[in-house]
């Protein structure tokens, strides 16, 4: 078995591997089918997945499932995602990070921005199998709503069957901070510019983790 095995992969995803490290760049659009991304990571392998769904005013239906299994000691995975929805888009992503071996690490940081009447649903799961030792995992989901009509659902799941692990997850849903907006306007920015600045700051927190060459493409 290869250290990293791609069992299923949607079309349009770029994966490059270098030794035991694979980087997966996914600049998705709304035309994708429902093929899941399923990856197993073996001994000391490292899988990095970067997902960017740029905003489109059309009616986008995006439904993606990502399952990464860490099956041998030393395996690790990192996921960064930035999803933007507008209009009447429907965005749904389900991420599972499954720890089946000792000394495995994973992290996931997803941000979503919802505008218009879009619907965003993010389900994320960390599971640590029975008897595994010294695993660590963290997951963060932040959702920014730019429109009161936008509906956001977040379901972060933590499922552990061993005491010897350290896991955490967090999820937030909020609108633009009115104090921050007020501050920017008091410095001379108009309302639209202030909103764009705050939105940019939110995006930057995710995009700064993207590989350098790719982060400016979106």
């Amino acid at each position: 078995m290869d250290v990293i095995e791609i069992i299923s992969c949607p079309r349009g995803i770029s994966i490059s591997c270098d030794g035991t490290k694979c980087t997966c760049l996914d600049f998705a659009d709304g035309c994708r089918g429902k093929t899941p991304l399923i990856v197993t990571v073996g001994g000391n392998g490292s899988f990095h997945y970067y997902l960017r769904l740029p905003q489109s005013d059309g009616c986008i239906v995006f439904d993606q499932t990502v399952t990464i299994s860490l099956v041998e000691p030393g395996a690790s995975a990192e996921i960064y995602g930035l999803l933007s929805g507008a209009g009447s888009s429907s965005i749904s992503i389900s991420i599972s990070l499954l720890h089946y071996a000792d000394n495995t690490n994973s992290s996931c940081n997803i941000g979503s921005i919802g505008d218009g009447c879009c619907s965003i649903s993010i389900t994320s799961k960390i599971a640590v199998g029975s008897g595994t030792k010294n695993c660590s995992s963290s997951m963060q989901i932040n959702n920014l709503r730019l429109s009161p009509q936008c509906q956001v659902r977040a379901t972060p799941i933590l499922d552990t069957a061993t005491a010897d692990c350290s896991c955490s997850h967090g999820a937030t849903v909020g609108d633009l901070d009115r104090d921050q907006l007020f501050y920017l306007r008091s410095r001379g920015l108009d309302s639209a510019a202030a909103k764009i600045t705050l939105r940019g700051a939110f995006e930057e927190k995710i995009l700064r983790n993207f590989p350098k060459a790719s982060s400016c493409n979106g």
Partner: peptide
């Protein structure tokens, strides 16, 4: 064993919802 299964569903304007969990 431990499981944490929260669901957040936000539809109102200017709402702030935070969830955090640790093990």
């Amino acid at each position: 064993q431990s499981q944490t299964l929260p669901k957040i569903d936000c539809r109102g304007r200017n709402c702030t919802i935070e969830h955090e969990a640790s093990l």
